[in-house]
């Protein structure tokens, strides 16, 4: 029974990882039939690559800030729209909607809103203002990118928190009320504590997803201005396919994979401790 699943893992995960690992030790440009083996050279280059370091910082900002806010917003909204009622049902659907739109469409949509000639700046200009460089100035561009990423991701975290909230045993809430707990105490000491496994899943999934941010950057800022909003994935794809350095791009991809693995394990371990504390 296990064989088909293992075969799928082999073909679709382990073999590609193996190929990426091999390519990362070559100077392949995507066209040469037999790439030259260059050992660890590509990995040595990574740490001297200034734009890559900058892309790593941008990715870290997106991953940390995006994960925290997408989860905080998702949890907050889940608490608001949890329970019966037509308005809440409509609100749940509407709030989840951004997540089902493709990242590229979201990027184009928000670039039409935030661009130098976009909707917001057109209104500001019409009112006699000077406009805001949402996508034209590095700090603004990063802020805009992170906000759009949060907007695009809070829907799915909200749905997972809703699922978690609906499995909480009602008698515990009642017991908390009888014990005289106020709303905050009920939330913090009962609901949030019992949601610990959902929090873990949400944090890990959001973090992994944001560490790989690509399409939204492509459609919203194209990595600009001046490459200041490039994420690691965006940089890897640019280096690999636009600059014809697939070997070097593969080395970066392997390293990113390792980083994601480490972050996932660390985050899960941290959350497991929190879950154990709740169980105790």
């Amino acid at each position: 029974m296990l064989a088909p699943a293992l075969a799928l893992v082999l073909v679709f995960i382990l073999v590609p990882i193996g190929i990426a690992g091999y390519l990362s030790l070559t100077d392949w440009d995507g066209f040469t039939p037999r790439p030259e083996f260059i050992g660890w050279e590509n990995y040595r280059r990574i740490f001297d690559d200034e734009p890559l370091v900058q892309a790593a910082v941008v990715t870290l900002v997106i991953a940390v800030v995006g994960t925290l806010f997408a989860n905080a917003l998702g949890l907050g909204l889940a608490l608001l729209v949890d329970g019966p009622g037509r308005f809440k049902a409509v609100a749940r659907g509407a709030l989840f909607y951004p997540y089902i739109i493709g990242a590229v469409i979201i990027g184009f949509l928000w670039s039409a809103i935030l661009g130098s000639n976009g909707a917001v700046n057109s209104v500001l200009h019409a009112l006699g203002g000077t406009g805001i460089p949402f996508l034209a100035e590095p700090t603004w561009a990063i802020i805009s990118l992170v906000l759009v990423i949060i907007w695009a991701n809070f829907g799915v975290t909200m749905v997972l928190y809703l699922a978690g909230l609906q499995t909480l045993p009602g008698e515990l809430m009642e017991a908390a009320l009888i014990d005289g707990a106020n709303a905050w105490q009920t939330f913090w000491r009962v609901k949030f504590a019992l949601l610990a496994p959902v929090v873990t899943i949400n944090l890990v999934l959001t973090m992994i997803s944001l560490l790989r941010t690509y399409e939204l950057v492509l459609a919203l800022t194209a990595g600009g201005p001046a490459g200041t909003t490039q994420t690691i994935t965006y940089y890897i794809l640019t280096i690999s396919f636009a600059n014809g350095k697939l070997g070097y791009g593969a080395a970066q991809a392997v390293l990113l994979m390792v980083v994601i693995l480490v972050v996932t394990v660390a985050l899960t371990a941290m959350r497991r401790r929190a879950e154990r504390d709740v169980a105790a």
Binding site: L114, G115, S116, N121, L135, A136, P225, A226
Partner: peptide, 16 residues
Amino acid sequence: VSKNANGVKYNDSLVD
């Protein structure tokens, strides 16, 4: 030139 030109897309520049 506009100091915010970096935030303008090709199609928008044509429209401008």
